[in-house]
Amino acid sequence: MSLLDVKDLTVRRADGRELVTGVSFTVGTGDRLGLIGESGSGKSLTALAVMGLLPAGMTAHGSAVLDGTEIVGARDGKLDGVRGRAAAVVFQEPLTALDPLMRVGHQLAEPLRRHQRLRGGPLRAAVMAALAEVRLDERVARAYPHEISGGQRQRVAIAMALACRPKLLIADEPTTALDVTVQAEVLTLLDGLVASRGMALLFISHDLAVVAGVTDRIVVLKEGVAVESGSVRDIVYEPRHAYTRSLVNSAWELEGELDRMAP
């Protein structure tokens, strides 16, 4: 059985408008799937629906089974056990994901205490180990979120997501707000962590080159509909759907000149 099985997922607004329509995909243990689409394609809503975190007024229909638990229609209390343990999310803007009034070390300790029931010395050691794992200095533990850089904050957010030892990591545009060089570092880090832990990855982005770099398969979303899915290679070299073709061609076009100058 796959870790995440999404079938015919539809997200509706209160006024009945469909923002995501009949999207289906599966993520098996250790799989890496990319969701790609332009603004308004419903890619982020799909991720939120999978976690049972849709904003108020929106409803999910269809089915999304995460690690054996049906998320669509489930009560919030039931999902608490699934979130974190089965899947954890890293969002685009790390500053809003961290509590501004709490030192980084404390924030990081919270999920460790909850999920791994650590206390005292072992907890401190686990916090330091978690920081080391995302290549952050121990001193970061004593800093407040606004005192560290955007890249460091995103590393902290990743460390917090990993602290629950999830089987699936959902990353929603995790590097879009970062500088290119920092983006490259964070992507390399994420790539290594997912591989070394055998985690599954659901990576959401508008940037085809980024998605292609960290995932194996891609689902292309357009206005809430999955128009095409396939291996990275097929999507990038043999796109079948007209929309995928235009997306891929645009990416190649932009990159073409740079590839010619600096192969």
Partner: peptide
């Protein structure tokens, strides 16, 4: 470094 950091289709796929 800037140049190496650019995510590229040609490298990824």
């Amino acid at each position: 470094k800037l140049l190496d950091s650019v995510p590229r289709l040609s490298r990824a796929a």
